[in-house]
Nucleic acid binder design. Sequence first.
DNA 1: TCAGTCCTTTGATATATGTCAAAATGCGCG
DNA 2: CGCGCATTTTGACATATATCAAAGGACTGA
Lengths: 218, 218
Amino acid sequence: MPVDLSQGDMQRINDLVQKKQRVARGDYLYRSNDAFHSLYAIRTGSFKTQVLHEDGREQVTGFQMTGEIIGLDAISTDAHTCDAVAMEDSEVCALPFNQLETISRELPSLQRHLYKIMSREIVRDQGIMLLLGSMRAEERLAAFLLNLSQRLAARGFSATQFQLRMSRQEIGSYLGLKLETVSRAFSHFQELGLINVKVRAIEIIDLPRLQAAVNCSS
Amino acid sequence: MPVDLSQGDMQRINDLVQKKQRVARGDYLYRSNDAFHSLYAIRTGSFKTQVLHEDGREQVTGFQMTGEIIGLDAISTDAHTCDAVAMEDSEVCALPFNQLETISRELPSLQRHLYKIMSREIVRDQGIMLLLGSMRAEERLAAFLLNLSQRLAARGFSATQFQLRMSRQEIGSYLGLKLETVSRAFSHFQELGLINVKVRAIEIIDLPRLQAAVNCSS
DNA sequence: TCAGTCCTTTGATATATGTCAAAATGCGCG
DNA sequence: CGCGCATTTTGACATATATCAAAGGACTGA
């Protein structure tokens, strides 16, 4: 948590953050309906979150990476409302929420930080609604790739070459598309010279045109 | 805000909540990029919130009614990230956010309430993602009608007879559909005997079958 | 009250994406 | 190292929804 705090305060946060926890690839960090105790800060690795409809339909609601906080949805009902699955071997810090609440009362900057993190999640979700509600298949995929690229760059990785951690099926679920459609969109972007795709290895060749593709995929 | 508070505390909240504000039908309560000062509690009337894409596309992200809080998205950047438009003559209470923050430090139950409200918004958004990402047109409309019905019932109105405040175009934007598709879905539900539609006047005739339609619109 | 405008409905047709199927490729495990 | 399974790609075809168009209805403001 990148909050700007003074010495002793930092200590209290550190105490809170002791418990590290490993999650193997494919394992669930939590499941829908699990009792809520902690938020989780991802230290290494990455996760997907998904909601399941009773009739078996599933929707991936996000792909999270290092430094991101998951579990915010569970505050509302004291139970998790989605599943969190590790997409690779990962490490998280459990942040017991009642302790967070207590400390945040005494540390205005932590309190504010928590509000901001939650608000940011709401804004992110609005962006996905815009994507799902008004973009076409290739626009969605372009937006997805650019978003990944940005977030990787922000973490010091290459913005133009990376390895996808998720399957076509998972990307499709996230983008509201079938896996075949995702695959075709990848192939088409490659034909157009926007990217190189070798299964899960992605190289962005023409960033400006990929950005343009978000607006009109014609 | 239905928080359970003790006498004097309630006074402080009341002080905060003094400023009532009228918003005429069609007027903006706030616009994207407006500086953020307050959350708004809707006292009477209803609003829609929408995000705009640079290329003119717009996406309605929600329809809010009495008792709901809007503006949570703005906390993240201190600027609003969507527009809020009154769908009828309405009244809101501005809740200055820095005062809310201050008071919530001293009133754990208010602090918790704020976290819960934000978390609930995140859960709501997940539900919309599921709808947009994996449901078909008629399933979406059925889900929309049932959601409206529930929320009206929770406010003491009829769950089976109500007046839509929004146009087919706005419903379509919210559901990721064109207005003609929405209109056809309404007509089809009427043919099936699930609802009566007279333009914006809706009567739900067969609630169980409408609920069933959310799962498979066949 | 009436005219004008906007909203809604409905039809005919186009198109993007889904479905089904099969082959190709990559990857984990023995 | 190679077998077998899972994932990805690609094709042919089906279908849900969008698009275009026109007519009918409802609401607004003078």
